[in-house]
């Protein structure tokens, strides 16, 4: 059975249909990519799945449970986490603290224990710190642990954001352009990290512009254009699909400047 089931999802902004009737499934350990020209509605789709927007129609199921428009912090509890296209890092905290924050659900406990630094509170915090160190080692940021996050390079921050999402121990991970703005080396590092993560059985839903990366790591690709799904299938099938080629290269009257990869 699919971990994540997206069924007929749609939303309009001021009468403009941003996303219309999009359905697809993601299985455990699978990497599914959502691609499409700029403005095709990829991020909007992500924002509906992760409850930042409330969809006008359609449903999202996680492990068979309807999670449509569930409060975002509860989604994390149910096993969904995400990263953002325009980095959402806790800039004024250290790299380590950012990773520890990912363990919030595990480390939080009674407030009064925290106020008086009682053993219970310190034990929870120490455990989260341990996990965070391991995670930072896994994404190659252990040496930067004590630095203020704002000082890291863009590629490192992208990895930190993934690490923080992994700390929540998600079943489904949504990655919104994890390699955007990264150089070739950084892209490759993130690429590996995503593949490794999928191997641990986490279902990954990816929005990405780097076509080489998408073709290389995806098991399944969903193509959006003007908010609608125009094709889906494995990388080889999708890249041969005439509708997809038309959407990316334009068909005469449409703008022909969308070629990405």
């Amino acid at each position: 059975m699919s971990l994540l089931q997206v069924q007929g999802l749609g939303i309009s902004f001021g009468g403009i249909r941003a996303v219309h009737d999009v359905s697809f499934n993601v299985k455990a350990g699978e990497i599914v990519s959502v691609i499409g020209p700029n403005g095709a509605g990829k991020t909007t789709l992500f924002n509906m799945i992760s409850s930042i927007y409330r969809p006008d129609s359609g449903t999202v199921h996680l492990e068979g449970k309807d999670i449509t428009a569930t409060e975002p912090h509860r989604l994390a509890r149910l096993g969904m986490s995400r990263t953002f296209q325009n980095l959402q890092i806790f800039q004024e905290m250290t790299v380590l603290e950012n990773a520890i924050a990912g363990y919030h659900m595990q480390e939080s406990g009674p407030l009064w224990q925290d106020l008086f630094a009682l053993p219970g509170s310190r034990r929870r915090a120490a455990k989260a710190r341990e996990g965070a160190y391991e995670l930072l080692a896994r994404v190659g940021l252990k040496n930067a642990a004590e630095q203020e996050a704002g000082n890291l390079s863009y590629g490192a921050l992208k990895r930190l954001e993934i690490a923080r999402a992994l700390a929540t121990e998600p079943k489904v991970l949504l990655l919104d352009e994890p390699a955007a703005g990264c150089n070739a080396v950084e892209t490759e590092e993130i690429d590996e990290l995503i593949a490794e993560t999928a191997k641990t059985g986490i279902a990954i839903l990816l929005v990405e512009h780097d076509m080489k990366m998408v073709m290389r790591i995806s098991n399944h690709i969903v193509v959006l254009d003007h908010g609608e799904k125009i094709a889906e299938g494995d990388p080889a099938t999708v890249s041969q699909n005439p509708d997809v080629i038309a959407a990316y290269l334009g068909t005469g009257e449409e703008e022909a400047s969308h070629a990405d990869g």
Binding site: L75, I89, F90, A167
Partner: peptide, 18 residues
Amino acid sequence: RAMRALHGSEVAARTVGI
């Protein structure tokens, strides 16, 4: 930490369950 995290980014704080 949760308070400082939401100070940094409320949307991101929510994604980690805060």
